[in-house]
Design a protein around this nucleic acid. Structure first.
Lengths: 266, 266
DNA sequence: CCTGGCCTTCCGGTGAACGGAAGCTAACGG
DNA sequence: CCGTTAGCTTCCGTTCACCGGAAGGCCAGG
């Protein structure tokens, strides 16, 4: 920065992004002071930068003057491949699965050490689940998570298991050795299963969405009440959908290769 | 800025946001040079700022080095009220409507002079439509758009009609006087209808989602093939859903009022 | 080997950015 | 009515982060 910056070496861009980073699921609505405190910025600086974000509509203000994430940022975020490609392709398949089963359906990708939920369909008849679009849940205790983890590169699996494995219920597989065995079984079967490992009373199955080269980038799964045990019967349908999604994803990737840049407006 | 800035008066924050603004639906994937050109920035500047955006994961790079919107920006965008409140509340109602009708269902809000599509459900049996989550379509030629326009403040209606009204098909109501009459009829009926006004072969009905005070903030509508004329029969279901959504939205707004800031993590 | 397109790194001058302090507004209580 | 508190907004002199032309790298195509 310039001037009497208290903390040298922090760029304007980084401070601006820190303001956006002050928002999270528990804090989707912040006053200027809260935002400044959470971003670690002096009030006057936060005020100036927030003004610029507001002008671009990355932030909005409600009647009380509190800041919220703005429409333009939401719109821009929709351009991320995870939404514009993956979600777009997967949604019709997920609706088919929903109509056939009436159970919760999740689509997740791996991001760092988390399963990131990209889409979720659920009706009134399905079990209420804690997931939510944009939610991050652990790889070792969810169906979609285990499907992502079991088919990841061995080095990643090892790295994941080295870390502490939080326990959510008494059924969570929180011991390294048991998790390795569970992942090996998942690889053999070709699909992941969970039983009350994240939430008591819920059971799930999931399959990876294959990728042409290497580890899967996404996974697809059902969650239901644990007393309904026919979930494994839905695995073939799940696998067919996953393969359909993979095929469509590769097609659109090929589309892109020859032209490299097709830019109608320039 | 500092230094030998060619264009004075443009702040770093504004340039950073201009880089994000270089992306749109037709350009979700940009090389550094394209991004710089579209943002109106010198290459070296764009390179530096893009590096900061990438570090925060507001941008990602693919195998070829091209930039795309990053996961973190997508995640942050989900915190916008339009997604975290409106969409979350409306989705179960929309699924009910879909199961009962098997038609396309749209949820839109007004943003400036556009209808902004917030959510869309459609099955394989429904007509393919041009809408897409995040799409912007005109207020005078779509069902959800007319529902938003007809129940807006009179001053806004006048301002909208002053502007040129683009024509999309020979059925588009592109004349000011006819549009006024159509909006009056929409107000009396309490719901909007369109007939091939945006797309030949498609018809739609829509209702506003009432707001405690003043103009509706959102609207909900069906789109179907125009030869299926029973769409008006679905209006009561649509209206019931809109009222349900409005009630749930007001409840959650009330939750917020007493505590003003309920912040479990601080 | 040369050429063209694109990405990345370097570096010195300078004006945009910084943030403490003061002013402002609103709500509350005595 | 006025003192107090809490939060937002504005002001302004100092200074260092930013700027971007230029040079260097890299790759593919001729």
């Amino acid at each position: 920065m310039a001037g009497n910056s208290s903390e040298s070496g922090r760029t304007v861009a980084a401070r601006t992004l820190a303001l956006l980073g002050a928002f999270d699921v528990a804090h989707p609505r912040l006053s200027l002071s809260e935002m400044a405190r959470r971003a670690g910025l002096p009030l006057a600086t936060a005020h100036r930068l927030a003004g610029e974000l507001e002008a671009w509509r990355a932030l909005d203000r409600d009647e009380q003057g509190c800041y919220r994430i703005g429409l333009r940022l939401w719109e821009t975020g929709l351009l991320a491949p995870v939404s514009s490609s993956l979600r777009e392709v997967a949604l019709p398949f997920m609706q088919d699965l929903y109509e056939a089963s009436r159970e919760n359906i999740h689509l997740a990708v791996r991001d760092g050490f988390d399963a990131l939920y990209v889409e979720k369909l659920s009706g009134h008849s399905s079990v209420p689940v804690i997931s939510r679009i944009g939610a991050r849940l652990p790889l070792h205790a969810t169906g979609v998570g285990k499907a992502l983890l079991a088919f990841a590169e061995p080095a990643f699996i090892r790295a994941y298991c080295e870390r502490p494995l939080p326990r959510y219920t008494r059924y969570t597989i929180a011991e390294r050795g048991r998790l390795y065995r569970e992942l090996a079984r998942t690889q053999e079967r070709g699909h992941a299963e969970t039983n009350e490992e994240m939430t008591l009373g819920s059971t799930s199955v999931a399959v990876p969405i294959p990728h042409t080269s290497g580890a899967p980038t996404a996974s697809l799964g059902f969650v239901a009440h644990s007393h309904r045990s026919e979930l494994t019967g839905l695995v073939p349908a799940l696998r067919a959908a996953a393969e359909g999604i993979a095929r469509r994803l590769n097609e659109s990737a090929d589309d892109r290769a020859p032209g490299l840049v097709h830019d109608p407006s320039v």
